[in-house]
C-alpha cells in the first residue's frame, strides 16, 4: 500500500489529474464563497453548472466554435443565479428551497432538452460539439516532471487560478468587496450605510454565475468532451461544503477544493489496484464532510480561546474582575 502510494504521488500523471479535477470544484467553490459573503446561500450552483454544460455543448455544436459555446454556457449559468436572486429577494422565498427547486428544474430540464434535440437521454455524443483548447506552455513543458503537470492543461484550469486572484482582489481591494462583506455581515447596517443590499447580492450572484458557468462548460467541453446527464455529479453541493472549509476567502478555496481534487484523483488510481470502485467513489464526498468538521472544530476552538482572552483581559483592565478571572489572569502573568 505504502509503495503504491509513493508510486502514485511520484507520478506526474497523478498531479496532472489533481489539477484537472480540482479546477471545476475550485471555480464553483469561489462562486459559493462570493455568494455566501454576500449573505445568500447559493444551492443553485449545481443547476447552474448543469445548464452551462448543456448549453455550452449545444451552442458550440451549432456555431462550430467552442468560445461561443463557453459564452452561451456562462450566460445560461448567470441566468440560473439571477433567477435564484429574483425568487429569494424579490419573492422572499427561502433561498435554499429555491436552490433545490432550480436544481430539480436543471436535472429534468437538461435531460428533457437533450432528448428533444438528439433523441438520447444519456449523452450528447451525436452533437458535434467542440472542446476548449489545451494549452502547451513553451519552455515550461520541457521541464522534466513538472512540465507534464503544469503545461498541457485545459485553458479553464489556468482560468481557475486566475479566478482565485481576481476574486481575491474583488473581495479585498475594491469597494464592491467591502460592500459584499458588509451586506453579508449585516443587511440593515449595510442599508443604513447607503448600500443597496439587493444590488450587491445581484452582483455577487452574477459573479457566482460566471464562475459556475466556466466550471460547467469545462466539464462538458474539456474534462470530458460530451454532456452526460447529471454531469455536475454533486459538485455544486460539494462547493457549498468547501466554501465553509475555505473560511470565506478566495485563497482558502484553493485548499478546500484541493481536498476534493486530491481524493478524486486518488480514486482514479485506487480503482486500478482493485479497490472496490463504489467505496472509492464515495471517498471525495466523505472527505469533504470530514474536512468540514475539522475546520469548524478548529475555528470553534480558536473562537473560544479568543473570547477567553478577551474576557480575562477586559476584567484586568477594568479592575473589577471576580475571583475566577483574576486568578486566571495571575496564572497567565506567572507563566
Amino acid at each position: 500500500m505504502i509503495h503504491f502510494l509513493i508510486s502514485v504521488f511520484g507520478s506526474s500523471n497523478y498531479w496532472y489529474i489533481v489539477f484537472r479535477s480540482t479546477a471545476p470544484i475550485l471555480l464553483v467553490t469561489l462562486g459559493a464563497v462570493i455568494s455566501e459573503q454576500a449573505g445568500i446561500s447559493n444551492m443553485a450552483l449545481e443547476g447552474a453548472m448543469l445548464w452551462a454544460a448543456l448549453v455550452g455543448v449545444i451552442v458550440s455544436a451549432a456555431t462550430g466554435s467552442a468560445w461561443m459555446g463557453l459564452a452561451a454556457g456562462i450566460l445560461a449559468s448567470i441566468l440560473v443565479c439571477v433567477t435564484l436572486w429574483y425568487f429569494a429577494l424579490k419573492l422572499e422565498a427561502n433561498a435554499v428551497l429555491v436552490g433545490v427547486a432550480l436544481n430539480l428544474v436543471a436535472h429534468g430540464g437538461t435531460v428533457f432538452v437533450l432528448y428533444s434535440l438528439t433523441g438520447d437521454k444519456g449523452i450528447s455524443s451525436s452533437l458535434a460539439s467542440k472542446t476548449l483548447p489545451f494549452i502547451k506552455i513553451p519552455l515550461i513543458q520541457d521541464i522534466p516532471w513538472l512540465g507534464k503537470i503544469i503545461s498541457g492543461q485545459n485553458i479553464v484550469v489556468y482560468i481557475s487560478i486566475i479566478a482565485v486572484v481576481v476574486l481575491n482582489l474583488i473581495l479585498n481591494k475594491y469597494t464592491i468587496g467591502r460592500r459584499i462583506k458588509a451586506t453579508g455581515a449585516n443587511v440593515e447596517a449595510a442599508r443604513s450605510a447607503g448600500i443597496n443590499p439587493d444590488r450587491v447580492k445581484l452582483f455577487a450572484l452574477v459573479i457566482a454565475g460566471v464562475l459556475a458557468g466556466f466550471a460547467g462548460c469545462f466539464l462538458s467541453m474539456g474534462y470530458t468532451s460530451n454532456f452526460t446527464s447529471g454531469i455536475a455529479a454533486g459538485r455544486g453541493y460539494v462547493a457549498n461544503a468547501a466554501q465553509v472549509v475555505a473560511g470565506g476567502t478566495a485563497v482558502g478555496a484553493i485548499f478546500a477544493a484541493l481536498i476534493f481534487g486530491l481524493t478524486d484523483a486518488l480514486a482514479t488510481f485506487l480503482q486500478n489496484v482493485g479497490m472496490p470502485p463504489e467505496l472509492i467513489q464515495a471517498l471525495p464526498y466523505a472527505v469533504t464532510i470530514l474536512g468540514f468538521i475539522v475546520v469548524t472544530l478548529s475555528r470553534d476552538r480558536r473562537e473560544a480561546a479568543r473570547k477567553r482572552a478577551l474576557f480575562s483581559g477586559g476584567a484586568a483592565s477594568g479592575g473589577a474582575g471576580d475571583g475566577g478571572t483574576a486568578k486566571k489572569q495571575a496564572e497567565g502573568t506567572g507563566a
Partner: peptide
C-alpha cells in the same frame, strides 16, 4: 424527465 422540471417549478 420533464416531470422533474415541473416538480422544480412547483417548489419554486
Amino acid at each position: 424527465e420533464f416531470i422533474t422540471f415541473l416538480q422544480g417549478l412547483i417548489i419554486l
